[in-house]
Design a protein around this nucleic acid. Structure first.
Lengths: 243, 243
DNA sequence: CGGAATGTTGACAGTCATCAACACTAGTGG
DNA sequence: CCACTAGTGTTGATGACTGTCAACATTCCG
């Protein structure tokens, strides 16, 4: 599964073979994290960063009044928290959603590697992609109604999973509860439930037993105004609607 | 005004004097952009990146159905679009809000500079800060009501402007219309207007003639649950509530 | 098997959007 | 310098989308 990480980092451009093997060797300390357990907590000052190897995780922030907002889903191959390489303190938490395998990379090794321009650039590139995803998330929350919002997120997850080989056509496993979905979308679980029902009734997609089935990707993308450009997967696989 | 940029990039850590002067020399081509004019458009493939020297700009995305979402405000010292150093195509537009002075940096020079580890790391750091701001924006849109949302954004802008020396105590110039505010907050202009009225009535802040006056920063921050940690300004000035 | 977590549905309420009219401001041209 | 007009701000009435509360069904897991 660590080829997901490799594939991502490599698509940053032209890592020399030497750099490639250095990057791969970052992943020698892989640990298992149980589902629904924190990988790192808000306010911590860890001495290592994490890379998702297998499973799903999420970034989240809990407000004083209680509500939670998920700001990102982390899939195999994603860096969880490169910022602790540079910042001293986490400003949010990261939790495993499904049982996951996570690589632990000492902060010092990250800093060492960034002495190499190619690698520093690759890490930077990864951050820039994350930024683009965050911007799309903002657009989703700010300017789409609940229906489009849910559909758009599913399209994004589908594209990203497909990119790392974890989604065929229109089917993939999604270990999220409706409550977690609602925390990501700025909605309530009840309303997410209703929207899912409508998506099902309209024949666009269904979510049953932790599995997503998109009946007609092109239709869902059109309905929810999804354009995968922002994922910047150009050098990798992008699922093309079979239109 | 370019000391804003310098201050930001320098706080990335330890740029050597040589690196510092290289970075500063990036800013030799500064042009003026009129208010409300695009600095760069969605879909363009420019051959240079932009740095804000003076004035305000915003990132925005226009959806097919028409509504606009602003995903970031760009203040003096901010990179506008480092991603074009690496990606080929803009996935959103950037527009000047007030008349602005903007440095144009050829893409090639950016790539050259990233051959130097210290500089690559500094650029990376800037991206990581942007990411943190985007995450806070998502939390704002997803989990705060209109009232807290407006107040929180004002707190953020105040902290950022103070950081580059453009805000004293609780006063600063903000060249935004209520419509632009609403595009940033995922609200309608009408509702932003009502919220501003309430903020005024409750004695927290006012917005008149393009000027923000925060009567009681500590109170506004408390009311809207603002914690400046996410701005990662630690090495720079952070406005401390006079409580 | 049984209890807890998750999903589902309905009734009702509230926030915010929409529509519309009018006031004010600012910039333009005569 | 004033008049004029477009843009921006303000306020009210109305309605839609989404949240809240609550009950019950279903699934998951020890």
């Amino acid at each position: 599964m660590s080829q997901a990480f490799l594939a991502k980092i490599l698509s940053a451009g032209d890592l020399s073979p030497a750099d490639q093997s250095l990057v791969l060797r970052l992943l020698d300390d892989v640990r298992t994290v149980a589902a629904r357990r924190d990988i790192i907590r808000d306010g911590e000052r860890p001495d290592h960063v994490h890379v998702m190897i297998e499973g799903w995780a999420c970034r989240y922030k809990v407000l004083r009044a209680g509500p939670r907002q998920i700001t990102a889903f982390l899939l195999p191959g994603d860096f969880c928290d490169t910022h602790v390489t540079i910042f001293n303190e986490m400003d949010h938490g990261i939790a495993a959603i499904s049982e996951s395998r996570v690589a632990y990379v000492p902060r010092g090794r990250m800093l060492e590697l960034t002495e190499r321009p190619g690698i520093a650039r690759a890490f930077w590139w990864a951050s820039l992609v994350d930024e683009a995803v965050l911007r799309a998330w903002i657009v989703n929350l700010g300017r789409r109604d609940a229906f489009d919002r849910v559909g758009h997120l599913i399209c994004e997850l589908h594209a990203r999973l497909h990119n790392v080989g974890l989604a065929d056509d229109g089917t993939f496993d999604m270990p999220l509860t409706q409550e977690e979905l609602s925390d990501a979308l700025g909605l309530t679980p009840v309303h997410v439930n209703r929207v899912l029902k409508r998506l099902r009734e309209e024949g666009l997609m269904s979510f049953r037993r932790r599995q997503i089935t998109i009946s007609d990707i092109a239709a869902l993308r059109a309905a929810t105004d999804f354009d995968p450009i922002y994922l910047h997967l150009s050098k990798q696989r992008v699922p093309v609607p079979t239109a």
